[in-house]
């Protein structure tokens, strides 16, 4: 169906995943760390869809569907945690969050 080699898509996916990893390592705003995690999830989704199309099977697309749901749940809980940390600490810098208690 497609004439593009499957490894090209996978390399784009690897690049996006690496950019997400560097974002998690470098940035200290938890919101941007969250966005980087979303980027990594999406890079994996691209690999799933690529292999689903290459193997001519719908399974990869279903994994993407499940990952999407889990990502939505993760964002809801994570953003709620960030908002409640902001309420108690008045600032959001991950380097200053070194205690598990409020």
């Amino acid at each position: 169906m497609t004439t593009i080699p499957v490894s090209w898509y996978l390399i784009v996916s690897a690049l996006l995943f690496t950019i997400g990893t560097i974002g998690v390592l470098v940035r200290r705003n938890p919101l941007i760390i969250f966005m980087s995690i979303e980027l990594m999830l999406n890079a994996v989704n691209l690999a799933f869809v690529t292999l689903s199309s290459y193997l001519d099977s719908a399974d990869g697309q279903i994994f993407v569907f499940i990952v999407l749901t889990v990502a939505a749940a993760e964002v809801v809980v994570g953003l709620a945690i960030i908002v409640s940390i902001f309420r108690t600490r008045r600032n959001i810098d991950v380097d200053e969050m070194n205690l598990l208690r409020g």
């Binding site: 497609t2 898509y9 784009v12 999406n42 691209l46 869809v49 199309s53 697309q61 569907f65 999407l68």
Partner: peptide
């Protein structure tokens, strides 16, 4: 990425 999915023929995933 949604456009990538369209290119790969995964229309439902692209719309979602």
């Amino acid at each position: 990425l949604a456009m990538f999915y369209l290119q790969l023929g995964a229309m439902f995933i692209a719309i979602v």
